[in-house]
Design a protein around this nucleic acid. Sequence first.
DNA 1: AGCACA
Length: 325
Amino acid sequence: MAGAGIHPYHNQWPPAPVPPPATATSAAAPLPPPPVHHPPFSTHDEVRTIFITGLPEDVKERELQNLMRWFPGFEASQVNYKGEKLMGFALFSTAQLAVAAKDALQDMIFDAESKSVLHIEMAKKNLFVKRGIVADSNSYDQSKRLRTGGDYSHSAYTTPTPFHPPPVPVWGPHGYLAPTPPYDPYGGYPVPPVPMPTPTPAPAPSSYVPVQNTKDNPPCNTLFIGNLGENINEEELRGLFSAQPGFKQMKILRQERHTVCFSNLQDLNSASNVHHSLQGAVIPSSGSVGMRIQYSKNPFGRRKDSNYSVASPSANGAPPALTYQ
DNA sequence: AGCACA
């Protein structure tokens, strides 16, 4: 009976940084410092953040991040959509690396279509990274979301894999782009600097964040998922939940302020497993917030408003309960 | 915190 509830996703977000599954990286060669997980208390108070203007209006945070991630020392980036002009920030591990990225990106044509040319300066202050979510030191604002280096950092420059181009020289000094080349802008490099996001919905969340699940509802076959972030991608969400064992169907509800989701599983046990294994899961489009999972108040298959007790005396053998309510 | 659909 109980005790055999082994499910493939035994995630319970280890509270301490768990050493990643060491892929046979021999630590013989001197590796650059790990780009992420920089403690907030940096010993140096030097500015190691660059300030980016000239981004196209429809720039996505992910685009900036995918650009920045190729630069050594990149830790986190952020787009501020608040002001009249877009501002981007990117934090590096050292001021020197920030300057290097600044110089490499200076006057780069970010988007030939919209004629966007980047202008980079050193920021006035460092980007403030707070456990994945960030605020500029000046103001905290919901319209700003931060993307940290994340778990892909291992594949970029830490290991000189042959198929990854060394990023910096690609867009060398000033406008590696010809006026408007309709062809491969990465001149000679077989691989674009921004890897294609894997089209297959990765059923594994990118990370987990502790969630305080204040109160839950009685266990049932349907899960209510909230705290999904404003820019949640439905496909991504669907991909995640539909890959869970016992998945039956789901419904995504876009509301004014919060998008929520209902995931219906074949039985209570499956729902319980997912409830546990995905609690606090973070997927890329949710920003850096972890989803909150609760059992639904209205499990699938049961009517919300029942006038007289349980309104389905089907073959469950349950006698009609006497409920005066 | 935000709980629809049958």
